[in-house]
Each structure stands twice: as C-alpha cells, then as structure tokens.
Write a protein that binds this DNA or RNA. Structure first.
Lengths: 228, 228
DNA sequence: TTTACGACATGATAATTATCAGTTTACAGA
DNA sequence: TCTGTAAACTGATAATTATCATGTCGTAAA
C-alpha cells in the first residue's frame, strides 16, 4: 500500500497542510479504489462517510433537476478532493458524483478529516482557502449561466476544458466528453449543444474527429465570449 | 461606542466562535457606519481592508456582465458578514456590494479577522461552515439558473424573499425591491420580469400595491416551481 | 456478417425570452 | 401646484432555445 506522505497528488490539495503524524493517520485509514467510467461515486442526498482524493481520472458533480436532466456543476480531477463540503458540515451530499473516465481515488474516512480540522489550524485555513476559491468560481458560473447565450457558454466550456485538461498531440482536448455531457455542462438541450458545435466546426472555431474535439481558433472563441 | 461582546447580531455569524479577548480586539478596532440606500459598499475588483458585519439593512452582491447588466448573486442582511471571502484569500472582491436600503454596518479590519483565523481553530471551523453553506447555495442557484424557466425563477425569488425577509401586517414582503432588482436577481430582462409579475398578479399568485409585492397563493407558486 | 442499439446529427416547428419603441404613473424638487 | 424624470408598464416583433421527429453512423454482441 502506497503512503500518503509520498503522494505527489497531495501537493495540489489541502492535505499538504497536514503534518507527518496526521498524514500517517490518513495513510493508515485510507482505502484506494478504482472506479470505472460511468460508475457512481456517490449520489445526491447520500450521507458520506469520508472524502475521495482523486489520484487519476475525472469526475462530474451534478444535480438532477425537476425536468429530468442533470446539470453538471463542475468537473473535478487529479489532485482535488471530492465530498469535502458534505463531510465538513456533516450533511448529505448536495451533488452526485459520477466517473467520466477510469479513476483511481483514495477514500479517507471522515473522522480523520474532522479531527485534523479541529486540531490543525493550518489545515483548516487551507481547506477554507480552497472552499473560498470554489465559491468564487460558483459565483462566476451563476453570472455566466444567467447572462451569457448558449453560443457563448459552449465556447467557454471548450476553452475551460482546454486549459484544465490539456490537448493531445493532434490538438484535441484530452478529456473526451459525450455531447450530452457537454450539453449538461453548458446547461442546454443536447440537440442545441450539437448544433452549436457543428456551427463552430463549420466556422473553424472548433475541430473534431469522432468524439474528439479541439480548439480551432482560440482568439475568435474568446471574442465570441466577451461579445464580438 | 457599543461593544461587540454585547451585540446580538454576533449570534448569527461566525463571530460567535470568538473568545472574549478576541471580541475585545474586534470591538476596539471596528468602525460603525451607516450607509444610505443605493450607496456602494465596495466595488467588484476592489481590494478590501476588512469585512462588514451587517447590523441593519440589506445589501445586494452583484457582478456586471459584458452585456451591461448586473446579475445579483445574493442578498445579504442583518447578522451576515460581507467581504469574508475576499479577506480570507487576500484577493480583490469578486462581487460588488450595494445597499438596498438604509444600512448600519460594522467595519472590522482584516488583520483582526486574519489573526483570529490562525489562532482560534473554532473560529476557523465556524467560518468554514458558513462558507460551505454559501457554496451549497451557490451550487443550487447554478442549477436553478440553467434548468428553470423565468416563470419558475420569479416564483422562487418571491418565496425566497418571503421566507428570508418576512411580511408586513398587510401581507406584503418586508423588503422592497425595484422591478429592475428583481429582474437582476432572476437573471432576466426587466420587461420580462414585469410581465411575469403582472401575469402572476392576474392569476392571484401575487398581490401588490405600488412597489410592495406579496404572496397571493403560496401553494400554487410552489407547484409552479417544481413543474405543476 | 448481420443485427441492434446508442450516440450523433439535422430539419421543422413551437415555446420562451429579449429587444425596441412607446405610454402611463409615481413622485421629488422647483 | 407644476414639472421633470425615473420607474413601471404594454405592445409588437425578433432572436434564441427547446422539442419532436427522423435519419445516419459506428460499434459491440449474436
């Protein structure tokens, strides 16, 4: 079993504020699991017994709305921690988490987290910082959702995907998402998302090959987002 | 000058986790101000030198979007603290704050907050709890914005206003907002908001007299929100 | 290879929402 | 009281987006 003390993933999240002793506790109590593409990590409304530290892969956090479709609120990937919020406030998960691709995660029981929270102020402040960052991002998403058109939001999603997940050698975005996922991320109907993508392809703003999609003209996409 | 130790407002926010000594420091360093309706407390992008604890009145937190209108992200009122997020991560304010009505606030310098954050874990955890709550709410707003119609969002806003700000003796919501503010809260054009309000009035879902608006049929509004 | 199915795609149409233009109303200040 | 101005409102129309219906394509299982 690998040791958390040596895990480089830790550098990217709040666990880096833990001391050696605390990390040892985490290491001893953690359970590493692999999760297949499409598998549910936890459901909306589920009580969580711990958090999931992502070593590999990407998860979508989404919420089902009354009309039957689910809105993807955010994508979470390598180095980030899933379920932190719910564990801290000790309430049921507000969002559901599903694996977008094959994942490797470390499950850390809530006791380990909560104890450290009350004993190590540095850790608490670090978690607070992350949460503050998430909150800012969420506020920005609210503004985007309510003030931008579907065209602009689609453009934004692809630039976001590029900067956060990178490109392969052929210039396609490394993270493969279904059109439906893209639509759920944008907050629009799947058909609408497909239409906009086709339009962007025709105009050279995007390129694609099968399910792979890449940025064709980043500058034009940027211009489109801010409004011609 | 009134003492923070005796301030009941404190009971509602994270300051209640401070000890006597810390509260004394806050009390000594705080500046009480009154802010007139429509006045700016801080602007989007401004560096904050402290937080504002609201003793009286309501503030809207909003963000200007490229198309010229600003989206109200949330309303903050008595007992809540403004600017916490920006002070904690030491970065410029992401949202601007404007007084919706006459306000009384206590300005607390950032040093006082930051110092306590590093010294009193209970305080930090309490702030974290509040932030976690805000994050959940923000996530819910994202889902509402992208999945609900303008009609549903208008209905939701009025129920929200009723539960959070109460009603006067005639059954009107205690907080008076302009139609433009309501539109900015809903994330729609002012004319659209006005039209929906008129429609709801005709159907008896809302009642109104001048700028005052009240709930006419709470049950029907609820049904409308979840989708008949 | 054939079959079946799900994801992708496109057309036609309807529903929702924004925009523009103009009118009425409320109300603060002269 | 009169007057000017901002907010509230209404109508007509355009733009955006959703929905339904249908067709194509690729791929995995038989």
């Amino acid at each position: 079993m690998s040791k958390c003390e040596n895990c480089i993933i830790r550098q990217f999240n709040s666990l880096r504020a833990m001391n050696t002793e605390e990390l040892k506790k985490v290491s001893d109590s953690k359970i590493t699991k692999t999760i297949k593409k499409g598998e549910v990590i936890f459901e909306e409304g589920e009580k969580l017994n711990g958090v999931y530290c992502i070593r590999e892969g990407v998860s979508k956090l989404s919420k089902l709305s009354a009309n039957g479709k689910d809105q993807i609120v955010k994508l979470v990937s390598k180095g980030e921690v899933l379920g932190q919020r719910s564990v801290i406030v000790a309430e049921a998960a507000n969002l559901g988490a599903v694996a977008v691709n094959e994942m490797t995660v470390c499950f850390i029981p809530k006791e380990t987290i909560v104890n450290t929270l009350h004993q190590n102020p540095n850790f608490t402040v670090e978690v607070l910082r992350h949460m503050a960052h998430d909150l800012k991002q969420a506020d920005d998403v609210i503004v985007n959702m309510s003030q931008k058109t579907v065209h602009q939001r689609v453009a934004e999603v692809f630039l976001y995907l590029k900067t956060n997940f990178g490109e392969d050698k052929d210039g396609f975005i490394a993270l493969i998402l279904s059109r439906e996922d893209i639509a759920n991320l944008v907050g629009t109907a799947t058909e609408s998302a497909i239409r906009v993508i086709s339009e962007f392809k025709k105009k050279g703003l995007l390129i694609s090959s099968g399910k792979k999609i890449g940025i064709g003209d980043e500058k034009k996409l940027q211009e489109l987002i801010v409004g011609f």
